[in-house]
Amino acid sequence: MNFFQEPQSTQMKEIFSRLPKKLNKGLSLILGLGTAASVGLSAPKPAEALPFQDLIVPGIQYFQLSNLSTKEKVKLGSNIHQQVRSNYRVGTNANITRIGQKLVRSSSCSQTPFKFYVVQDPSINAFATTGGYVYVHSGLINAADNEDQLASVIAHEIAHICNDDLIGKLRQAQLAQGAASLAGLNGSKLTAVAYQLAVDLPNSREAEFNADAKGLQYLQRAGYDPNAMPAFLKKLVNRSSAPAFLSTHPNPRERISVLERKIANNR
């Protein structure tokens, strides 16, 4: 099942087309040549390298991203977190953690040690990386009418991690570039690429609908009102100025329709 549901030769073109030229060039260099380009971010702190000797097939030096253990995903998520901290004001919040852990217990990857953070940013947004790292913007927290609506967003982000969506993006990037060109890509450079894919580039349409579906299940299992998920989307759509993130996601009205059908059919 292809990530962008297109031939591999065009998958990375779509990723690159969403970047400004400067970032495009930086990401191309990192993916293709293994250079130390900064991908347009503020100078990140050096990230500790993953144990790639365990991730490389002898002879062809091909990173086995599909076989990462939970421990290795957590390590990659921790490395990405250092870059998130370099670029955002990040903190913790007891209520967000409580809601998040309640949802994790109802998820399909409760063995992952999840961590929840608040990004001090007035924009309405949230994102997830890998290994249990979930981030919610303060603007989104303020926009939610109640805990159920806030939980619906957190459940969606948890689902992205349970579905290994960032790892899937990395695999597709790797396949598109070819194993040989990645032979020199070390842990810190992989972290930079993973940050770019997780924070700055959107997920595929398929990944977003899958995260909606799983997130809805987690929401219901945790005892929250499932109607909160389409209700919050409706609220955002009806704002005088729709949040920017909606432009990089599938049509929100279609998402709302699909969610309401699933709730009606108890799926």
Rank of each mutant, 00 (worst) to 15 (best):
F3I: 09
F4L: 13
Q5N: 12
E6A: 13
T10H: 12
Q11R: 05
M12V: 13
M12H: 03
I15W: 01
F16W: 02
S17F: 07
L19A: 08
P20K: 03
K25E: 11
S28R: 03
I30T: 12
L31Y: 05
L31W: 04
G32M: 03
A36I: 04
S38I: 14
V39K: 00
G40H: 11
S42M: 05
A43K: 14
P44S: 12
L50W: 04
F52H: 04
I56N: 10
V57G: 10
Q61N: 15
Y62M: 15
F63H: 14
F63R: 14
N67A: 10
N67L: 10
L68K: 06
S69D: 05
T70I: 15
E72W: 10
S78A: 15
S78R: 14
N87S: 14
Y88A: 13
Y88V: 00
R89T: 14
V90F: 08
G91S: 13
A94W: 00
I96D: 08
I99K: 06
G100E: 00
L103G: 09
L103H: 08
S106W: 00
S106Y: 06
S107P: 01
S108A: 05
Q111M: 00
P113A: 06
F114D: 01
D121L: 09
A128F: 02
G131L: 10
Y133N: 15
Y133W: 00
Y135K: 05
H137T: 05
S138N: 10
L140D: 05
A144S: 11
D145I: 01
N146C: 01
D148K: 07
D148A: 15
L150I: 01
S152Q: 04
S152W: 00
A155H: 01
H156D: 02
H156R: 12
I158M: 09
I158T: 06
A159D: 02
D165E: 12
L166S: 06
I167P: 03
I167R: 02
G168L: 02
L170N: 04
L170M: 14
R171M: 14
Q172Y: 07
Q172C: 08
Q174P: 00
Q174V: 00
L175V: 04
Q177Y: 04
L182E: 06
S188C: 02
S188E: 11
K189D: 13
L190Q: 07
L190I: 12
T191H: 09
L197E: 09
L197V: 12
A198E: 02
V199I: 13
D200S: 13
S204W: 02
E206M: 14
E206Y: 11
N210G: 04
N210R: 10
A211N: 03
A213Y: 01
A213L: 03
L216T: 09
L216G: 08
L216N: 11
Y218I: 06
L219D: 10
L219K: 07
G223R: 11
D225G: 12
N227Q: 15
A228S: 14
A231Q: 15
K234R: 15
K234I: 06
V237G: 11
V237E: 06
N238E: 11
A244Y: 02
F245K: 01
S247P: 00
H249G: 04
N251W: 02
E254K: 15
E254W: 00
I256S: 08
L259K: 08
R261G: 01
A264F: 14
N265D: 12
N266G: 08
R267N: 11
